[in-house]
Amino acid sequence: MRIPCPYCGERDAHEFAYLGDATLTRPDPAAEDAEARFHDYVYLRDNPAGAHVEWWYHANGCRQWLKVERDTRTHAIAAARAAREADTPAGDAA
């Protein structure tokens, strides 16, 4: 698999570390039901067959966290943006 890193160009997936679902937002720790929300945030994951937005870390490259939109069935990658630049409306594909 090859990931188009916005800094380094297209690179082999071996250079990256995978984290998982990138649509999750760290809950407000001050919320009344913070524990329940954190439980979901830490443990619950969907396992979609299809488009999936996920975190990849370019460990052997620019050390940037990337938000990658990947089809879990075909490994086709629709987009990859740096985390810092991803939170524009276009970045939140899910």
């Binding site: 760290r26 975190w55 870390y57 940037q64 966290w65 740096a82 985390a83 810092r84």
Partner: peptide
């Protein structure tokens, strides 16, 4: 060492840019 570095980058780039 590597794990913590990766974690700190995640916190900075993703959680608190």
């Amino acid at each position: 060492a590597a794990k913590v570095y990766q974690h700190l980058e995640f916190c900075l780039q993703v959680l608190w840019p």
